[in-house]
């Protein structure tokens, strides 16, 4: 089966002017400006199949949102090939636009002074959804998101979480085959984040929609995405299953020990790098290959009451990939 989204050597450079600091710098820049290229996306290639739920992760300015914007046809790339459902996104063909949706956690499309239902009706007209299909889809989404009682409340009177639910309905009223979710849970409390994640998972399962998700919350990615694409400085660092990140990037393991008697921190440091020392508990990072030897040494030389050997936390691994530090 051909991929739904195909990206080859995608580049998007922005020309940005460089301003020297201070008033004189500003005056000089009125007459003479120096420009340089910002490589927002720098030679990215990947494919995404039908029904996949893929997480884009990377630090701020990594190129995640720019990639989504090129895939949605908002931006013209500097170079490269992109095909989504067989279309070139930046041609902005209505036939393509009717099959995808873009949800941005920091931007809204709902009419602020009107109940959300009015924005849904407007989108129904824009996407030319039949009355029958509109009713079925709306009923289904309203039930899934449990928002029956707030459909007729003005958007400005809704909480952030309620508004985000309404944004999702507005974005899904035409049953898109591809869904681009840019930080959909940003600013939401943990309960609402969980509800959103449950919804996204269920939507993907029920409608076989292909979903690309960017998020700064690792919980979103861990819970939703089997596959992740790690981006930094516009380049693709990793594309694969989430648990493969650990194999690829984590060359350390964590030994978590609980001691029955007091232990000396300096003695413990001989085993490995102490990540946490909170007697009677300590967490020690050791090279992956030496994990069993280190565990044996710990059991032999210290009064260990309990011992766990764990992989490093995915959040830590990714954070350290981006900061270029050693891992674990």
């Amino acid at each position: 089966m051909p991929p739904v989204i195909e990206v080859k050597n995608l580049k998007k450079y922005y020309k940005v002017h460089q301003k020297e600091p201070g008033l004189m710098g500003s005056i000089r820049s009125l007459f003479h400006r120096k420009y340089y290229d910002v490589k927002a996306v720098d030679g990215m290639s990947f494919e995404i199949g039908e029904g996949e739920l893929v997480g884009f992760i990377g630090p701020n300015g990594a190129g995640k949102t720019t990639t989504l914007k090129v895939l949605s046809g908002l931006l013209y790339p500097t170079s490269g090939f992109v095909s989504a459902l067989g279309y070139t996104p930046w041609d902005r063909k209505p036939a393509y636009q009717k099959q995808f949706s873009l949800v941005m956690g920091q931007k809204n499309q709902l009419w602020w002074d009107l109940p959300a239902i009015e924005s849904f009706i407007l989108n129904k007209e824009i996407y030319e959804v039949s009355d029958e299909r509109y009713k079925t889809t709306l009923d289904e989404l309203v039930t899934l998101l449990e928002v029956e009682d707030i459909l007729k409340v003005q958007v400005r009177k809704l909480s952030l979480g309620q508004r985000m639910k309404m944004e999702l309905i507005a974005a899904l009223i035409h049953s898109p085959k591809i869904l681009f979710l840019d930080e959909p849970t940003i600013g939401l409390d943990v309960v609402m984040q969980k509800k959103m994640r449950d919804f996204i998972k269920e939507y993907n399962r029920r409608f076989k929609a292909t979903i690309i998700l960017t998020s700064h919350y690792m919980d979103d990615v861990k819970e939703l995405c089997e596959r992740v694409i790690i981006i930094d400085h516009g380049k693709l660092l990793f594309d694969g299953k989430l648990d493969e990140i650990i194999k690829k990037f984590a060359n350390h393991k964590l030994l978590t020990a609980v001691f029955s008697k007091k232990v000396d921190r300096e003695d413990l440091a001989k085993i490995g790098e102490i990540k946490e020392f909170d007697p009677p508990k300590a967490v020690i990072s050791v090279p992956r290959a030496a994990a069993s030897t280190a565990a044996a040494a710990l059991l032999k030389n210290f009064p260990v009451a309990d011992l766990n050997i764990e992989e490093a936390q995915i959040e830590d691994i990714i954070r350290e990939v981006f900061t270029g530090k050693d891992l674990a």
């Binding site: 914007k69 949605s72 046809g73 908002l74 902005r92 209505p94 036939a95 636009q97 009717k98 995808f100 949706s101 873009l102 941005m104 931007k107 499309q109 989108n123 824009i126 996407y127 030319e128």
Partner: peptide
């Protein structure tokens, strides 16, 4: 303009 440009209108 982002969301507007993504719509079939």
């Amino acid at each position: 303009m982002d969301l507007l440009l993504s719509k079939p209108v």
